[in-house]
Design a protein around this nucleic acid. Sequence first.
DNA 1: TTCCAGGGGTAGA
DNA 2: TCTACCCATGGA
Length: 303
Amino acid sequence: MPDTIIRLTPQPPFDFENTAMLHGWAELEPTWYDPKLHTLQRVEVLPNDQVVVLILHSPGSVWQPQIEVSIMHESPIDKDQLAELDGRLKHMLRLDDDLSDFYALCAERGENWLRLKEGWGRLLRSPTVFEDMVKVICTTNVQWGGTKGMLRRLVAAYGSPFPRNDQLHGFPSPQTIANIPFDDFATAVRMGYRTAYVHELATRVAAGYLNLEDLRSPLLPTGEVRKKLLGIKGIGPYAAATILMLLGHYDEIAVDTAFRSFIAKKYFQGRYPSDKEALAIYQDWGKWKYLAYWFDIFSEYSS
DNA sequence: TTCCAGGGGTAGA
DNA sequence: TCTACCCATGGA
């Protein structure tokens, strides 16, 4: 079966590599980045259960961006599945987000912040809120290597395989996870105490008690979404702020050990301030605090 | 071996 | 609202 190609034309400025790589999501299965080929790849399960592999690359530039998506598939893809895929890709890359206010603020700041205007800030996310939520739960109280391992085991054990290469699996659906007996699930994924949070989340979503995808509505105020997130077991202040960022609300910073040590090092000569003092650093970024912090920490450790 | 990580739940104040 | 304590797992 010949592969199919979708072409996307983002509004400039758009930095493909930065979008793919900035916050680590491209290191979590079933997504990965090939630094040599400059391609972002992902195994995706379509609504009709067809498993495909997506290979994204960007032949354009920041100011004339293009994205070419090669879809590897074993059986024909119909128009509806392609339309669904198109929507998921735009969501993952945040192609419809308007960051112009943020870039205007960066221009006012000047200096290093000017770099941000060149297409930064579209942090990669997953096609579904469910997948992002599972991933965020797996970042809590664990080192990054541990997070990657949990996701690798989850996807390998329960994700639908790609017919052309059964080493490649998609992300398991809530229904799939909910149907697995808890003890079997725990043994396979080895997520520690997070196992119960992930299994319960999947069970509640599968049963229809929770509709996570509704949280994507940009009309919902941050406070309302935050409240709903904190009502989910396994989601505390750090996870809620991270998920809010993934949903496009940047007004809260996720306070974790990385944030605390970065602020102590850069702004307090090594002394650890209170969280309140630390958060005050970004207070005047308004609804863009998370992006300002993320750029700040990225440029500190990449320079 | 011990420590602790891109924290969170719970009980008790 | 704040604090103390416990929580599985695995990398360093």
